Simulated assay, not measured.
Amino acid sequence: MFDYFVPGIAAFLAGILNSIAGGGTFLTFPALVYAGIPPVAANATSAVAVFPGYLGAVAGFRKELAALDRTNLVRLILLSLVGGLVGALLLLVSSNAFFSLIVPFLLLAATACFAFQEKIQRWTASSRLAVKPYGATGSVLVAIYGGYFNGGLGIVLLALYSLWGMESLNTMNGLKNAVSFIISAISVLTFALAGVVHWPVAALMMVAAIVGGYAGAWLARKLSRKTVRGIVIAIGLIMSLVFFGRLVG
């Protein structure tokens, strides 16, 4: 029961965090590792646990998505499917030892991106580097990252869209959630077919994450965004230190 209790509580809290500020993966992945699930399988199971939340977010931004050019949207979906599949396959061929080695760096990088999200968006919005909107290179590379390790994916996507010259935050958020759903869908399917998902705990976590999402909507009215962001950053740093400690321990 303990092996289910910790991931279940983590998923509930992750649902709250995701509904307010994001960063739920900082809780679900470490909780699964703590429960005794090997790192690669824990990452796959975590991806399954947070997967349903994207669909609801997509529905909430359907008007913004409908206003996008259909050809560009289809192109982006296809590129995301390809990148997400590559990332998921890379995870499957990664050994637990190798994944354990790079996880602390991935967690720390995702935490840094989250902590400096607004500065990153301002910089990308003002730099306007020579990045082609809906370009294949950036889309596929970000999707590979998302298929391999979902943490911080939304922040990376928002930075990419800023480089593309997009300005409407609602449109960017809608596209971010749609692409995250596509990447998660192909990676979850890949992990399921490969048999690396721990389904009993994944099913419990999906339910807990959905309930947490509803609770987060209520809590969002009580806590400031700054407070929640501080909590997420603290969690990310603590988890990064924990996994760095596992390397040297």
Score class of each variant (00 low, 15 high):
residue 134 Y to E: 12
residue 98 F to N: 00
residue 57 A to C: 03
residue 33 V to M: 07
residue 36 G to D: 06
residue 23 G to M: 11
residue 128 R to D: 11
residue 71 T to S: 12
residue 15 G to E: 03
residue 99 F to Q: 03
residue 39 P to R: 00
residue 67 A to L: 11
residue 18 N to R: 04
residue 123 W to K: 03
residue 78 L to C: 08
residue 121 Q to I: 14
residue 97 A to C: 00
residue 16 I to L: 10
residue 20 I to N: 08
residue 75 R to C: 08
residue 139 S to M: 15
residue 40 V to H: 05
residue 137 T to C: 08
residue 29 F to K: 02
residue 22 G to I: 07
residue 138 G to K: 01
residue 42 A to C: 09
residue 44 A to K: 03
residue 51 F to A: 02
residue 87 G to Y: 08
residue 70 R to L: 12
residue 116 F to E: 12
residue 18 N to L: 06
residue 135 G to Q: 05
residue 39 P to E: 03
residue 100 S to C: 08
residue 107 L to E: 01
residue 120 I to M: 11
residue 91 L to F: 02
residue 139 S to N: 10
residue 64 E to W: 00
residue 43 N to F: 00
residue 15 G to A: 06
residue 110 A to S: 15
residue 142 V to A: 10
residue 24 G to W: 00
residue 69 D to N: 15
residue 23 G to I: 08
residue 61 F to L: 10
residue 96 N to D: 15
residue 130 A to C: 04
residue 11 A to W: 03
residue 138 G to E: 02
residue 79 L to D: 06
residue 24 G to S: 11
residue 119 K to R: 15
residue 19 S to H: 04
residue 48 V to N: 06
residue 133 P to G: 10
residue 106 L to E: 07
residue 99 F to V: 03
residue 44 A to R: 04
residue 73 L to V: 10
residue 139 S to L: 04
residue 102 I to L: 08
residue 95 S to C: 01
residue 121 Q to N: 12
residue 47 A to Y: 00
residue 104 P to V: 01
residue 137 T to I: 14
residue 40 V to I: 12
residue 45 T to S: 12
residue 61 F to G: 08
residue 134 Y to H: 13
residue 92 L to T: 03
residue 53 G to N: 15
residue 50 V to P: 04
residue 137 T to H: 04
residue 58 V to K: 10
residue 27 L to M: 11
residue 32 L to C: 05
residue 43 N to G: 04
residue 16 I to N: 01
residue 140 V to K: 02
residue 22 G to T: 07
residue 133 P to I: 14
residue 30 P to K: 07
residue 105 F to C: 00
residue 59 A to F: 15
residue 56 G to A: 12
residue 76 L to G: 03
residue 104 P to K: 01
